[in-house]
Nucleic acid binder design. Structure first.
Length: 432
RNA sequence: GGAGAGGUACCGAAGUGGUCGUAACGGGGCGGUCUCGAAAACCGCUGUACGGGCAACUGUACCGAGGGUUCGAAUCCCUCCCUCUCCGCCA
């Protein structure tokens, strides 16, 4: 969540930033609730102060009737005030959490996704001498994708992925973990992009796939209405991305500054209800209720947060171009970056069957928006506690990137080639 | 799932209704004395959040979490979470 002190000092700026993101919040009301809440807190503090004094005065001996009567009075008053405060605090927190993170200055201002700015295109869409098939058609022909049986078992938007497509996925996982675990690869990307941050490698993580309400809410990533599945008999939700269990990993901790940045590459199955997307992308495996994802997560100081964001985008580009896929990189505008983001970049990959670049990657810079609530901090050089900054970014989102490979590398005979960089990871196999 | 033990500050650990959470004691860390320097020894310091104040400073809260009893709770009661041991089940 955002810093209430910042809202108090800059109410107009916060209102403007929220508006640019297309998020309606009543900042005036928030400040009134804040005032009310603090007023109650002050009253509570002074009643408690007197209660403590009364208790101390009679300590060690039996209180006289006057002390006891005063104590009872104070108790009644305190009970009332505390219940008022609880109510006020709840309303306040709800509204405060509704306030989005402020966009950074270089984020394009826009009120629809049409205002996103493509600033780089890489690779060339393949030219086919035949009409290219969709990944669904290729997958069915080669018996790699079975949605019919999956629907029988789990319903729509589920899939059985099979055979060489599964081997391809595991090859990509091994490739990514090797690349991101290689200090030289990281150092080169840092140098090529003129960044000034350490070359710490990414530590691979298999995180839990479920998490409790409290950390999920604090992460600013719980979207109960549209996205997130709830386990009813326990206080648990199915994660919608490994990011959700990675960014919460250090909740309530103080991270040693000399270990920052901490970089992780997590692999997890992700679950999404897709409640708002009926009818969208029903063909193929582009939008499923369940998919696997390799996700990068970085904890850094405030000073280097933006550079970490740029590094993550550079890594994404490196990974996509390593697979030889045509892509474009897009600066998302204020409307599209999302509530917790200060900055957001997407990579879109070319899908020949749709003649479109489709979103396959996103990189999110959340500044201290998550860590304020999650209480993830570090010690500054003058020994003060300060909030850590978080970045998260897709390395590869599985069903989508498999689909992109199938379509871009397809042959006239209905098969597709293995991207050369992955051939060693498939034991020399060049074609599927 | 059953039985038992436990969750107190950076770590270990005492505290079972009334001089108080910087919370005994031990260790660690920081500063000082001593030393050419270091070790040892000795002395001092050693949390977080929120509020008030220009500031010095000051108030409140925090002993796993949330409720309750009481004039007063780390200490009593209830619910939940987590850790450990044993049994059961299981990959």
């Amino acid at each position: 969540m955002i810093d209430i002190n910042f809202v108090r000092e800059n109410p107009d700026l916060v209102a403007k930033g929220s508006m640019q993101k297309g998020i309606k919040v009543d900042i005036g009301k928030l400040l009134i609730l804040d005032e009310h809440r603090r007023d109650l807190l002050n009253q509570i503090d002074s009643v408690r102060q007197e209660r403590n004094q009364v208790a101390q005065a009679s300590s060690g001996k039996k209180p006289d009737t006057e002390q006891q009567a005063r104590g009872q009075q104070l108790k009644a008053k305190l009970t009332q005030l505390e219940s008022d405060f609880k109510e006020a605090d709840k309303d306040f927190l709800k509204l405060l959490r509704a306030v989005p993170n402020m966009p950074l200055e270089d984020v394009p201002i826009g009120d629809s996704e049409d205002e996103n700015v493509v600033y780089k295109t890489g690779g060339n869409p393949p030219q086919f001498s035949f009409t290219p098939l969709s990944h669904q058609e290729i997958g069915e022909k080669l018996d790699l994708i079975d949605k019919v049986r999956a629907a029988k078992i789990a319903g729509s938007r589920f899939v059985y992925l099979k055979a060489d497509l599964v081997r391809l996925q595991f090859a990509i996982i091994a490739f990514v973990i090797n690349e991101l675990g290689n200090k030289e690869v990281i150092a080169k990307l840092i140098a090529d992009n003129h960044l000034n941050i350490p070359n710490h490698p990414f530590v691979p993580v298999l995180p839990p796939a479920l998490l409790k309400t409290a950390p999920y809410e604090a992460s600013a990533r719980l979207n109960a209405e549209e996205t997130t599945y709830k386990i009813e008999q326990d206080d648990l939700w199915l994660n919608a991305s490994a990011e959700h269990t990675l960014c919460t990993m250090f909740m309530d901790e103080v991270l040693p500054k000399d270990e920052l940045p901490l970089r992780f590459i997590g692999y997890s199955t992700s679950f999404r209800r897709e409640a708002g997307s009926y009818g969208k992308d029903f063909e193929g495996i582009l939008r499923l209720h369940q998919f696997d994802k390799l996700e990068m997560e970085v904890f850094s100081t405030a000073e280097s947060g933006l550079e970490e964001h740029k590094l993550l985008v550079a890594i994404q580009e490196h990974l996509v171009s390593s697979l030889g896929l045509p892509y474009q990189i897009m600066n998302k505008c204020t409307f599209d970056i999302g509530k917790p983001n200060a900055r957001g970049v997407d990579i879109n990959t070319w899908f020949p069957s749709q003649q479109l670049y489709r979103e396959t990657h996103s990189a999110d810079y959340l500044t201290d928006y998550q860590t304020r609530d999650l209480k993830i901090r570090t010690r500054s050089d003058n020994n003060k506690l300060e909030l850590v900054h978080t970045n998260d970014a897709t390395a590869f989102a599985f069903s989508r990137i498999l689909a992109a490979i199938m379509e871009n590398y397809q042959d006239q005979d209905g098969h597709f080639n293995v991207p050369p960089v992955l051939v060693p990871y498939l034991g020399g196999q060049v074609k599927i």
